[in-house]
């Protein structure tokens, strides 16, 4: 039985994703515990250039094919299935990102190995791997036992320090030939688009007031704007606010929005789903106002308030102004 730990090295436009280093750091720890090798898997990309940043790995496997030049769920899944079929790693770590969500389940089901998703930790406990998952919007955790010869775990970004996985070096790169089914032409890449600019840059603010679904209506956004103004900052939001078109996409913090780390982050009616936490947990001072005492946001906030936001925000704004 292989004891190797494989990590999918995610890259976009020639740059490795930060979460990849998180996974590599964790993977190093696990490989040292199992006695196996830590191997980074590159699908497409310039292996010679990217491998230099993967020095923490004992080796790199690379699958290359024109259909892997840009992320294509079908081609990337086929390539990763091939890697796992040939090498049968004890554990394949995949980030629970947009790309990772297309890969993890595809490999697990096609190789018929178990998958644990939304993991925030993986540890070796005796002979078994145990993965801790964050479920129910962050309200519940589970520990899953993976005692078979091979498994896949998809990990939430922000679970491990990226610094632990960053090491320059020159690991050997092994090429694996692309499988026959890599390009069926059923999915084609068309274009990659950058977000629109021109709005307030929320990553450059010292203070952010974040509105969540608890704000209830577009008409209540000015309440948050007044507080943000009193703090000398700007308003940002959780995803549903942007989906409702109450604020532009440029204001969205989280997994599919932007990552921020301001001095002050005040949340109004934000539950603290993992996809939001990913974007703001490095803020220096987090204050959460949410009527639900079990809201996961209170796990990450420094100060919490369970009063109605509509009762607290007006007097707070007034006091900050005076």
């Amino acid at each position: 039985m292989s004891q190797d730990i494989f990590v999918v090295a995610e890259h976009l436009r020639g740059t490795l994703a930060d979460v990849t280093f998180e996974l590599l750091g964790k993977g190093r720890e696990l490989a040292d515990a199992t006695g196996g090798a830590l191997v980074a898997v590159l699908l497409g990309g310039d292996a010679a250039a990217l491998a230099g940043g993967l020095g923490i790995a004992d080796g790199v496997v690379h699958v290359d094919h024109p259909s892997l030049a840009e992320f294509n769920p079908e081609s990337a899944s086929a390539a990763l299935v091939e890697v796992v079929a040939q090498r049968s790693p004890r554990l394949l770590l995949v980030a629970n990102t947009s790309m990772g969500m297309d890969l993890a389940a595809a490999v697990a089901v096609r190789r018929d190995v178990p998958l644990v998703a939304y993991a925030t930790d993986v540890a070796l406990d005796g002979d078994a791997l145990v993965a801790t998952s964050q479920l129910y919007g962050g309200k519940i955790y589970t520990e899953s036992v993976l005692d078979g010869p091979s498994s896949v775990v998809s990990v939430l970004a922000g679970s491990f320090p990226a610094a632990a996985g960053k090491r320059d070096g020159s690991p050997t790169v092994d090429a694996i030939a692309a499988p026959a089914d890599i390009d069926t032409g059923r999915i084609e890449f068309v274009a990659l688009d950058e977000p629109e600019g021109g709005d307030v840059d929320i990553t450059a603010q010292e203070a952010l007031v974040c509105v969540g679904r608890g704000i209830q209506s577009e008409d209540n956004i000015p309440l948050a704007e007044a507080l943000a103004k009193a703090l000398g900052g700007a308003v940002c939001s959780s995803r549903p606010i942007v989906d409702s078109k109450w604020l532009p996409k440029t204001r969205q913090v989280g997994k599919s929005g932007v990552k921020v780390a301001p001095k002050i982050y005040v949340t109004l009616g934000v539950s603290g789903a993992p996809e939001h936490i990913e974007g703001m947990k490095d803020a220096e001072l987090i204050i959460a106002i949410n009527t639900d005492e079990n809201a996961p946001i209170f796990e990450y906030a420094h100060y919490g308030v369970t009063e109605d936001l509509f009762d607290v925000v007006p007097p707070l704004t007034e006091k900050l102004e005076s």
């Binding site: 697990a108 089901v109 018929d112 190995v113 178990p114 644990v116 145990v130 993965a131 962050g138 309200k139 519940i140 955790y141 589970t142 520990e143 899953s144 036992v145 993976l146 078979g148 498994s151 987090i286 959460a288 079990n294 996961p296 209170f298 796990e299 990450y300 906030a301 420094h302 100060y303 919490g304 308030v305 369970t306």
Partner: peptide, 21 residues
């Protein structure tokens, strides 16, 4: 199909969280 088993389900430890006002 291959699957894993749940060994424990738990809620996050409140002690590590925010200071409530």
């Amino acid at each position: 199909g291959a699957t894993s088993s749940v060994r424990r389900m738990f809620t996050p430890d409140k002690g590590e969280g925010a200071e409530m006002i």
